[in-house]
Design a protein around this nucleic acid. Structure first.
Length: 485
RNA sequence: GGCGGCGUACCCAAGCGGCUAAGGGGGAGGUCUGCAAAACCUUUAUGCGCCGGUUCAAAUCCGGCCGCCGCCUCCA
């Protein structure tokens, strides 16, 4: 079978075959560091983080590059508004970005190039494009002439004529075609500038990705990703620049994630209908957001709401509850019985998890279906533990099943906490009006009451805790507290 | 106007021609429990926006219609 990936270029799922043996080189467009990230950015980051993790899990030797756009108009505007310099703004929001990503469990890519660190490479490409006749100079700077690139529009499936008809942009007389785009912008007085053969200025947006992918991954690489809104013009323009400059194919597979919507509309800065990552993480554990994102296929839109996030919480709780149950089982395990048919049945279902998980992930990274495989296994474990197994095989079987779940969950980078950490996190995000030690204290008092069969007091304590969102579970070896979800 | 996508139970969501339409949440009933909780069991879509068509067979393919969204301007 093997891995299949939906390629925006062909509009179909294709068998994934890397350009160079087992090596996979992928480039993902990162963020422009001029403001805090919202959950739309979180989705893109989580999706490509998961894709890179799965490729590694699949045994590929992955080199993952994700850039920072640290110079552009939005950054300059922000700097002017805040009375800071452009690089202070970029630095501030780069740090904020790391802050958010760390909490979301998004691994740091192998290389995180910055646009301003690759000005020379950009100038080199621009020069090449001018020499080859793909670019021209105006009084504003240097522009790419889209009409010169025969395949222009191949990714976004559009042609220049039909775009002209619907164009809503003002016509810039200095450009030969209004879809021609800036490679180099001459700086105005007081704006940040770098020296170039065309005068002091700054790079256009698209050229940075061509330069950084070329520098770190070479002329042709495997995967290029980003949000679906980057298909046009950004990725179309990257293709035009890179292919024209190198004469080689650019990226082999184009992967684009769908949007997060609010009231069916795309979440975006300009519409103002966004939630920042940190606002959401005030109210929810990061894994809740991560599972919420991965519950939907990466290309489909996700309607965002707190209600949906609240619906996701119990599903995580179910997993942690089982994890706790498994460790309790292993801790007090004593061999008593001989192997039975329950063991055989459980062994049979246990063995299928990874296969089902991989089958789902192989099918264009179907994380929703992959999660279902994990939940099925959670049920199987619970079902098995309900039988109070105690054969010599039981211990190994449960350990194996739990280990498989952990392996699969590691690809999605979820269920990484201990149950204790999970409940503590819920205590914090739910803003429960009680501390852990207060809960422990009440549990002790209730235990004393129960020992005296004072059910009235015991139930009163349970009731008080319940009112504060805390649930008690009486087990053979003591009482556990959980946060109501 | 051009191009792309979406519409599956009370909610979220897989499914891409063929086993009883995954999985999670919620509801109802039950087992277990001092009472609970958790867990498990049963149940909750003869039907997948609507209407036709192709096929032995369609949520899945084709045509039409309705509703919604995205890109074409910065945008993950």
């Amino acid at each position: 079978m093997g891995l299949k990936i939906y390629n925006t270029m062909s509009g179909k799922k294709e068998q994934f075959v890397p350009v160079d043996g087992n090596r996979v080189r992928m480039y993902v467009c990162g963020v422009t560091v001029y403001d805090l990230c919202h959950v739309g950015h979180a989705r893109s980051a989580v999706v490509f983080d998961t894709i890179s993790r799965y490729l590694r899990f699949r045994g590929y030797d992955v080199k993952f590059v994700k850039n920072f756009t640290d110079i552009d108009d939005k950054i300059i505007n922000r700097a002017n508004e805040d009375g800071k310099t452009w690089d202070e703004v970029a630095e501030t929001y780069t740090q904020e970005y790391y802050n958010d990503m760390t909490r979301l469990g998004v691994a740091t890519p192998d290389v995180e190039p910055k646009a301003t660190g690759h000005i020379d490479q950009m100038l080199g490409i621009i020069k090449k494009l001018i020499d080859k006749g793909y670019a021209y100079e105006t009084e504003d700077g240097v522009y790419y002439e889209v009409g010169k690139f025969a395949d222009y529009g191949q990714l976004s499936k559009r042609d220049l004529e039909s775009m002209e008809a619907g164009a809503r942009v003002e016509i810039d007389e200095k450009k030969r075609n209004h879809f021609d785009f800036a490679l180099w912008k001459r700086s105005k007085e007081g704006e940040p500038a770098w020296d170039s053969p065309w005068g002091p200025g700054r790079p256009g947006w698209h050229i940075e990705c061509s330069a950084m992918s070329l520098e770190h991954l070479g002329e042709t690489f495997d995967i290029h990703g980003g949000g679906a809104d980057l298909i046009f013009p950004h990725h179309e323009n990257e293709i035009a620049q890179s292919c024209a400059a190198t004469g080689k194919p650019f990226a082999k597979y184009w992967i684009h994630n769908g949007f997060i919507t609010i009231d069916k509309e795309k979440m975006s800065k300009s519409l103002g209908n966004f939630f920042t990552i940190r606002d959401i993480l005030e109210e929810f554990d990061p894994e809740v957001l991560r599972v919420f994102i991965l519950s939907t296929h990466y290309r489909s839109p996700i309607e965002f709401s707190r209600e949906s996030l609240k619906q996701t919480e119990p599903s995580l709780d179910r997993v942690y509850s089982t994890v706790l149950r498994v460790s309790d089982f292993l801790n007090v395990f004593k061999e008593k019985a001989s192997p039975s048919k329950y063991d055989d049945d459980f062994a049979a279902t246990t063995g299928t998890l990874k296969d089902r998980f991989m089958e789902a992930m192989d099918d264009d990274f179907n994380t929703a279906s992959a999660l279902a495989a994990i939940f099925d296994m959670i049920r199987e474990i619970n079902r098995y533990l309900d039988k109070k197994p105690s054969s010599s095989r039981s211990r190994l079987l449960v350990e194996k099943a739990a280990g498989d779940i952990k392996d699969c969950a590691a690809v999605l980078n979820i269920f990484t906490k201990t149950p204790q950490e999970w409940y503590q996190s819920l205590l914090a995000t739910h803003k429960a009006d009680i501390t852990e030690s207060e809960i422990e204290e009440l549990i002790v008092r209730r235990r004393e009451a129960r020992a005296k069969k004072d059910w009235k007091l015991a139930d009163e304590i349970r009731g008080d805790l319940d009112a504060k969102g805390i649930i008690l579970e009486d087990k053979e070896d003591g009482t556990r507290w959980k946060v109501k979800v």
